[in-house]
């Protein structure tokens, strides 16, 4: 029996939105190579919506599938909607993750959130600069 669901395999074999965004509006990096997984998310925001989401991931099959799924779930959503994406909802969309992979590889939502926080921080700073 394969350890991964068909959905995970699909996102692993054909990951969506791989890459970097030049001059992103926000960037978030989580994890480290010691635990095995590291993810960087890049976002482009327009009218409070995630116009583009891209990622780069170092990690196992689950980590790559999670990143791909998060990017797909987030694209087009408002920032508020995107911030509601959780590891649980990502795992559900992927039709489940192996138990031991749930915590270590399921960092996508966290990386996306960090990118959004980065964007919000930059916006605040820019506003502050204008005043």
């Amino acid at each position: 029996m394969p350890i991964y669901s068909e959905k995970v395999m699909d996102h692993f074999m054909n990951p969506r939105n791989v890459g970097e965004i030049e001059n992103p509006d926000g960037m978030g990096e989580v994890g480290n190579p010691i635990c095995g997984d590291m993810m960087t998310f890049f976002i482009k925001v327009k009218d409070n919506r995630l116009e583009d989401v891209k990622f780069k991931t170092f990690g196992c099959g689950a980590a790559i599938a999670v990143s791909s799924m998060v990017s797909e779930m987030a694209k087009g959503k408002t920032l508020e909607e995107a911030m509601k994406i959780t590891p649980r909802s990502v795992a559900d969309e992927l039709e489940g993750l192996p138990k031991q992979k749930f915590h270590c590889s399921n960092l996508g939502a966290q990386a996306l959130n960090k990118a959004i926080q980065d964007y919000l921080g930059r916006k605040k700073k820019a506003k502050g600069g204008k005043q």
Binding site: F12, M13, C35, G36, D37, F58, G59, C60, G61, A62, A63, I64, Q100, K101, C104, S105
Partner: peptide
Amino acid sequence: FIEGEAMLMLLNSQGVAVTSGSACTSRAL
């Protein structure tokens, strides 16, 4: 720069069976 389990899975998709000592392939992580 890359991780073993992901290589192992892609090799498997090409019919090649190997193993890896990466954290992700071990149950102990």
